[in-house]
Design a binder for these strands. Structure first.
Lengths: 141, 141
DNA sequence: AATAAACTCTACTAAACTACTAGAGTTATA
DNA sequence: TATAACTCTAGTAGTTTAGTAGAGTTTATT
């Protein structure tokens, strides 16, 4: 399952995506509209800022806004930031590769093959899913 | 990531799959060959027995053996037993469905759509991956 | 210059989960 | 009847999750 952090992050980004090109949005406004505990959301938005996806303006009239193009923010990126690797086994991750401790021969491991393919399918799906796509999709309704 | 329980369960089943049609296999033998802590493995095999996948014989000359046909034991089944739902959001699971607490309208939720498709892809892949397939695949080498 | 709105940062915490271990109990066969 | 082997109940250290509390900093406006 996704962590709440990852889920809230995606919700906040989609919300900001809908509000795009307007003035900075208050944390409190996002929290209220998306039913997210405000203090918890603060930490999440801060992380997204450190990652270069959001930026913020302090003081009166401040708030958060998206700086990375919406079509370049994928679900894969968000999941990796908050929940770590997408793969289900350490031996099939790209960025965090680690051998399975108990494994004897990775090359002939039939289990690995299954999870390697699954990882590839999953990553492709989650890279194609961008915030922009969700915003456009929801605007059609 | 998979839990160790799920990973060990699959490893043990593949091991038993290779040994099929012979006499019951000792827990200690599986543990040694697959580098799994024995006491931990005991609990895992017990669960698999309760699920009707394995059976055991007590006493001298006893051990574990597979009773469910190898081609009917899928990775999806094992993951569900040990790690719960395969879907990444509660609102897209089949067996454990729960509405996302903070969600306003499931029908128009663009995020849900992404994870629903992903769930379907993933479940299909993990249902096609059976212990039999892995055993056959590994025997080719 | 003062005020207040708004983001920033550090620290803490309860609850749940993970990956085990210990040890006593039961069963079946040689 | 000895013993090999599975069964079952507890417990536990460490980690992660999903938060909360509260003081600090920045900046637009009056």
């Amino acid at each position: 399952m996704l962590s709440k952090k990852a889920k809230y992050a995606i919700k906040a980004l989609v919300y900001l995506g809908h509000e795009n090109h307007k003035s900075p949005v208050l944390i409190s406004q996002i929290a209220q509209n998306e039913n997210i505990p405000q203090k918890f959301l603060e930490a999440i938005l801060l992380t997204l800022k450190k990652e270069g996806i959001l930026d913020s303006k302090k003081g009166r009239g401040g708030g958060y806004f998206v700086v990375k193009p919406l079509e370049e923010i994928s679900f894969a990126e968000i999941l990796r930031i908050f929940d770590g690797p997408i793969a289900l086994l350490p031996c099939v991750t790209h960025d965090y590769y680690k051998q399975c401790e108990e494994c004897k021969d990775e090359a002939t491991c039939g289990i690995r093959k299954v999870f390697l393919q699954l990882r590839n399918i999953t990553v492709k799906h989650l890279k194609d899913a961008t915030i922009m796509n969700v915003v456009l999709d929801e605007s059609d309704k």
